[in-house]
Every structure is written in C-alpha cells, then in structure tokens.
C-alpha cells in the first residue's frame, strides 16, 4: 500500500467520503466531485468489451471457468408468483446444482424477496453460510425493489425486516429519479441510511449490494458517477440491474463498473464487489464476464465476496455445458431441473 492508501484505510466510510469530497456529502460537493471524474470514451469502452468477449476459452480452462461461474452465482427468483415451495426447491438446487455429480460446486447465494428470507434460511439449515465462506448465503432484495419508489421510512423498514429474517446480503435499489435529477446528496444519504439498517442486533452488518439499474441511467458517464456515489456511500457491492427491465447487464457497463472498482482500490486500498445481473443466460456470456474481471481487476476478484452473477436460467446452461464436458456428448434440458 502507498502512504496515501494507508491514510485512507485508517478512515471509516464517512470520513473517507469527507476527505475525498473535501466537505460534507451535499448535492453541490457530490456534483463537483462526480462531474469532475473524467468522461468515458464510449466507443473505446465497447470495443474493449467486445475484444475481451472474443477470447477462446477451451478444455481445462473452460472446465475451471464453469465451476467458478457456478460458485459465483446468486441463484435468483424474484417473481410475484414466488411461493415458499418454490424457494425451498431453489435452495435445493443451490445446494446440489447437479444431483448427478457430487463434485459440482454450490452457488454463492440464493436471492429472494424479503418476506421469503426466513423460508430460505430454514430450508438451508446447517448449510446456511451466514456470511462465512462455507455454505450458501441468503440475499434479499429490499428498498421497494425494483422501482425504489417509496418513502425512506418504508425502504428502511423493508431492509430491517429482511435483516431480522436472517438475510446475509441486502440488494438495495438507488432512487434513479433523484440521481437523474441531480439530487446526489439524497441518493448518498439513502445508501448510508440503508447501510445503517443492515446492522444486526449483534453489531455486525449484512453485506450491502447497491443496484444502479444501469438501463435507466442512459449513459456510461452516469453509470460511472453512480458507481462512485454508491462506493463513497459505503456499498460493499455495486450491482448493474434489477433484472426487471431491458437492457439489464451488458459487458461494457460491467467493464466500466469494474474500472471504478479498480480505481477505488488504487485510491484507498479497499476492495468493492461487482454483480452483473439480468440477461446473462449462457455459459458463453458468463465466461466473457469472467475474462473481463480477470483482465480488469485481476483474478483475485473471482471470489464470491467480490464478484457475483445475478441469474436464474444461467445455472442450467452452465450445468449442461459441464455435463457436455464430463460425458463428451451434448446434454439437454431434460437433464437439468425446471425452474
């Protein structure tokens, strides 16, 4: 670590933001800081992403990548029609993705709506990681997901509920309306408040993932600013999308977020996670993301505490690819579970 990084590392989140912004996190200070970030060369970014997506990953590297992808998945069900039964079967799948192959790794977490968290925790039983490295975590979407259109009190109650239910990770949405109309201070304060609401009775914190919903932010510059804002406010993860609107995660957007995370580490020495979510359905796509992570922030980021895929149908495709590599012939949807 450099001396300036050491100085940063000694500060807590609030003090660090204060030091970087040169004052309180007001609209004016945040705007000056966020608009002072260099703009993105959109053509260059897309070209870089396309280039990273063209790598050929075969045989043993592919096998490694597939297992890695499974261990990085937040297996998700976020439907209005979710039932306790569906969550239990999702948990079953998270624990044993491929019943035909005990060597198949478990996914990182299951991601459900807040009211279903206790069901997921109960279904996981002793396999519940509860923030540790072994087992499966429970993530909950909160803060009036997916629109985020509710009063702060309602959002905080939503978060508190999920944390009390046993959620290890909270996926919050930012107020895109406030962000787009330049009320950065409001967005910042909300993230800080939600982070505080993630505090458990024993003083520990649930992991906070901040959903930027990049599909609604319109430009790469906005994505970069929102990423900085979320990290300044203390988000543990920045997540691309809710998965409820198109476009969801794209490779260029994820690349630009990874660059912010890389710059943040250079600046402060701290590591922030990234979670692309929505629209990643095939192993081929997922491998592109793995390559992008390794090339942008380094292989050390390919761990569940720093990188996740938010996905539901991706797992089946990865399993079919995995079966193809083991058996030598193409597999089919009859050999994975319907979900």
């Amino acid at each position: 670590m450099t001396s300036s990084q050491l100085a940063m590392a000694r500060l807590n989140t609030g003090e660090r933001a204060l030091a970087l912004l040169g004052g309180e996190a007001t609209d004016a200070n945040l705007r000056r800081y966020l608009h002072g970030i260099p703009g993105i060369d959109a053509v260059g970014l897309e070209q870089r992403a396309a280039d990273l997506g063209s790598r050929s990953v075969k045989t043993s590297s592919k096998k490694w990548a597939l297992d890695k992808i499974i261990s990085l998945i937040d297996l998700t069900t976020l439907e209005g029609a979710d039932t306790p039964g569906k969550v239990r079967s999702l948990v079953g799948k998270a624990l044993t993705p491929d019943p035909g192959d005990p060597a198949c790794p478990r996914v990182a977490a299951v991601c459900v709506y807040g009211d279903l968290v206790p069901i997921a925790v109960e279904a996981l039983g002793s396999a519940h990681a509860a923030g540790t490295d072994t087992g499966v975590n429970v993530a909950a979407v909160a803060t009036a997901f997916p629109s985020g259109r509710a009063s702060l009190a309602v959002k905080l109650a939503d978060v508190g509920d999920a944390v009390a239910g046993g959620a290890d990770e909270i996926d919050m949405v930012i107020d895109r309306g406030a962000f787009l109309s330049g009320r950065f201070g409001q967005v910042y304060d909300e993230i800080v408040a939600v982070k505080e609401a993630c505090k458990r009775a024993d003083g520990s914190f649930a992991h906070l993932k901040v959903i930027l919903e990049t599909g609604e932010l319109n430009t790469y510059d906005n994505v970069r600013r929102a990423s900085w804002l979320a990290i300044l406010a203390g988000g543990d993860f920045i997540k691309t999308s809710t998965g409820k609107m198109v476009p969801a995660a794209t490779l260029p957007v994820t690349l630009s977020m990874l660059e912010v995370v890389r710059d943040w580490k250079r600046l402060t020495g701290a590591r922030v996670g990234v979670k692309p979510a929505g629209g990643i359905r095939t192993s081929k796509d997922a491998i592109k993301y793995v390559v992008t992570v390794a090339e942008t922030v380094g292989e050390e980021w390919l761990t569940p505490s720093l990188f996740r895929f938010g996905a539901s149908s991706l797992l089946n495709d990865v399993l079919m690819q995995r079966q193809k590599m083991t058996t030598g012939h193409y597999s089919g949807p009859d050999y994975v579970t319907i979900d």
């Binding site: 079966q323 030598g328 012939h329 193409y330 597999s331 089919g332 949807p333 009859d334 050999y335």
Partner: peptide, 9 residues
C-alpha cells in the same frame, strides 16, 4: 455422431 449422442435429440 454428435447428433446421435445429443441428449436433446
């Protein structure tokens, strides 16, 4: 051979 062994055929 690939079509014959394909599990989805």
């Amino acid at each position: 051979p690939w079509l014959a062994s394909h599990a989805d055929v």
